[in-house]
Amino acid sequence: MPTVGWIREDALEAFYEGTERTPDPGPPAKPTFRCPFCISVFSIQKELHDHVYKKHRVERPVMLLGGTEPSGRTVVRVPMGRSQVGVANATTVQISIDGRDPENCTPDAVPKKVAEARQAEMNLVLLNDSQANAQPVSTRYKISFRIADASELRRVEDAFAATLVSSSITRDTIGRFLSDPRTQGPGSEYASGLANYCLGILLKERPEAENLTTPFSRYRENYGSALQVLADFDRPLARLITGVVRFALNDFSGADSSTGYWELDFAKALLSDPSRASMPSLDGDAKRRPICPVDHGTARILDLATRMAAESRWSPILDDECREIANSEVLDATDHEKALAIWAAAALRTGSSRSAIEPLTQIAAVYPFNSWAEQYLENVSK
């Protein structure tokens, strides 16, 4: 049968078709793992991982203010020296101040810019692009600088003394304090901390004339907000108020630090570790003047601590007095716990172990009193 010429098979093609064989491909090739950053090739994936970790690791860039990394949004209220600012693992820094276009600078330039800022909004982007062929690692910080000088802070304190120390605390007096010209400008951050403290007092005491609808428990939020601001200021008034707030919230950290308010300092030491507390020696001729208001609940606890510490012997009358305060319906739970702790400490000090059992039983598992109450309860229950 005739065929088309261009597909006609000749003798040589027929020979090849009958004799060629496809070679055996053999076993599959072993997998290889190539480094994406260099020419290295590995036969084991773990070796690649170890290689990348050792040779091509890109650390996260970080900034430290006073030895601590700031949060994504931070407020700086006190001046910072250049030595307090550090930048690590960064190759480039982008800085934008008060909404202006970002500028690139070296990491070494950051401490100077931070130390010079007083009233500013600063956005920083730290970049680490030290590794070729890799996406740069970045860290972002937003820092609000609210730094006032000593004279500005003193004017705020003068307004505080004139408005909130010399008169009753009301929503009106707090508003007048915040609108006082002396509390405006750079000192406004300090003023807001003092105002939050006084608002916390108002919510905790709840005078009838104020007709408050805010829940009683919200006083802790105001105390916490005041503490967050005032703890940054190294001033006697700020230290005193932060000490009062921490005591009110049952935070006895820094019990050895002095606020100048001896009843508070003694009560802090007593409730932190009753075995170490001792009544301070007082100057009978020393004159005292009101520096800041203290909520009535905290004042009652401080009064209980000093009176019980002055007792040289124990009796059921003192049991009844302590029990009445510890069970008071108008005091906060944190004040109840402090009253129980003072009751237990005073009874133990005067040798009345049986009277100490009742309050110790109620606070043995309550933080932070459990650090000492549990052990005392074990000893007196034997």
Rank of each mutant, 00 (worst) to 15 (best):
T3A: 11
I7N: 11
D10L: 13
Y16D: 02
R21D: 04
T22S: 05
P27I: 01
P28M: 04
P36Y: 12
F42Y: 15
F42G: 13
L48T: 08
H49T: 10
Y53P: 00
K54T: 05
K55P: 00
H56E: 02
V58E: 13
E59I: 00
V62S: 11
G66E: 09
G67K: 05
P70K: 03
R73D: 09
R73Q: 12
V75K: 13
V75L: 10
V78S: 14
M80C: 03
R82V: 06
R82M: 01
S83F: 03
V87L: 08
T91Y: 04
I95W: 00
I95C: 12
S96L: 07
I97C: 03
D108K: 13
A109C: 05
V114W: 09
A115V: 02
A117K: 08
A120K: 14
N123L: 03
S130K: 14
S130N: 14
V137T: 08
S144P: 00
I147H: 08
S151N: 14
R154T: 14
V156W: 07
A161F: 05
A162F: 02
A162M: 07
V165M: 05
S166V: 06
S167W: 02
S167R: 02
I169W: 05
F177V: 07
P181M: 10
T183D: 09
T183C: 11
G185I: 10
E189Y: 01
S192H: 06
Y197T: 02
L199I: 03
G200S: 09
E205L: 02
P207H: 11
A209H: 13
A209G: 11
S225G: 00
Q228T: 14
V229T: 15
A238V: 12
A238M: 08
L249S: 06
N250L: 11
D256L: 12
T259N: 06
Y261E: 12
E263S: 15
E263K: 01
A267F: 00
A267S: 11
S275N: 12
R276S: 08
P280D: 12
G284L: 10
P290V: 15
I291W: 09
G297N: 07
R300I: 00
I301K: 05
R307K: 15
A310K: 15
S312Y: 13
P316C: 10
D319Q: 13
D319G: 04
C322T: 01
C322V: 04
R323Q: 03
V330P: 03
V330S: 15
L331V: 05
D335S: 14
K338F: 04
A339W: 06
L340R: 15
I342M: 03
I342G: 04
W343D: 10
A344G: 07
A347M: 09
L348P: 06
S352I: 00
I357M: 09
E358L: 09
T361Y: 04
T361I: 03
T361K: 05
I363R: 10
Y367V: 11
P368G: 01
S371K: 11
S371L: 04
E374F: 02
E378I: 13
V380D: 02
